[in-house]
Design a protein around this nucleic acid. Sequence first.
DNA 1: CTGACGTATCGGAACGGGGTCGTATCGATG
DNA 2: CATCGATACGACCCCGTTCCGATACGTCAG
Lengths: 203, 203
Amino acid sequence: MTSQAADRPETVGASRRSKITPEREQEFFDAVLAQIRECGYDAITMEGIAASTRCSKSTLYRQWKTKPQFVAAALRSHRRVRFAGIDTGSLAEDLRQAARVAGECSGKDTLLQALGHAVMQDQELQRALREALVEPEIAALREILRRGVERGEVPADHPALEYVPAQMFGVLRMRPVIEGEYADADYLVRFVEAVVLPALGLP
Amino acid sequence: MTSQAADRPETVGASRRSKITPEREQEFFDAVLAQIRECGYDAITMEGIAASTRCSKSTLYRQWKTKPQFVAAALRSHRRVRFAGIDTGSLAEDLRQAARVAGECSGKDTLLQALGHAVMQDQELQRALREALVEPEIAALREILRRGVERGEVPADHPALEYVPAQMFGVLRMRPVIEGEYADADYLVRFVEAVVLPALGLP
DNA sequence: CTGACGTATCGGAACGGGGTCGTATCGATG
DNA sequence: CATCGATACGACCCCGTTCCGATACGTCAG
């Protein structure tokens, strides 16, 4: 059903009519995501993106129809799952490793916070945010838990299992609000050891 | 040092020069906070507030100099601490009670989410948000924990103690993002029983 | 293979429409 | 007679469109 063609009608064979290379396109996306992280969604402007990437507004509007669609496309280009590939053979160590990874890019990836409320106004933006940032991370975390259950480290119906993803992301995002500093790797690892593992009945 | 006079130079004795009664003032504050919850900080306008409260823009600008100062004043008027007054005599029951209270007004008080990133631009707004919304709730929760320690239910140096506030607020705010529905009282109480209490070594 | 040519896309700039901030002016009111 | 509500105003900004000349791609004749 060529569902990915909803983005842009490129790759229609061998003839590339657009002079925008994939690398150039990624520059646009990187620029807009950086500005969103810095100023928030409402504050960014197409004019600002055009200026910071030294392209013209016309070009942006030729490729994407509106600002929310442009941002949504940028989000979809951002599929970098931090929790993918963690598999140490032990659930406890997997969770510690996840905490470390999350802590290391804690201060950087504030996209979710920056998009915050803007997402409630635009359906496409909301879907793009969920599919690009939320669901892949949650799925990777659930996969870690599933393997732990499969190895018999935790009973499949353990009531704390359901809350692990919300806990991890919640604590990650609340520490700046509560204590005024980022949730670094050390903080998160101690959290896993003091709360998550004991609640799961692990050492 | 009359540090509270930074808000408005009212109550300068018996002569009330402004015709705005405290009740009327609260209407302004309620209106702006409601609109922030609904549309986010960036989307609200002084004109919109004036229209919805049937006062004139002039009046708003006479009382508060700018939009961020107006919003900050509204935040400061919002000192309603949900977790205050919880004291059942048992730490476990206090936490369950806190979960219930939090879950009941979960969908309503999205102020923190709505202000989101706007707070990073204005120092005064940031301080007002912390002092009005964050710190009182955290303090009330810490008070609940302190009493539990005092009663000997939990050792004072239990490593999980530090994370309880971040956990509660974190899970409260992450469920809508992760699962797409509000964290109701039932969800939060089950969370307390499945995670928070076991991590603290309570039944 | 080479070189010239058509043409689609690019960057730049301007424009209309809409909107907000914060100020100023006014008559009305209590 | 100070403060209110209403209204208008200037300055600024942004969205999305449209025009234009310049540029580089793709194609094809030689």
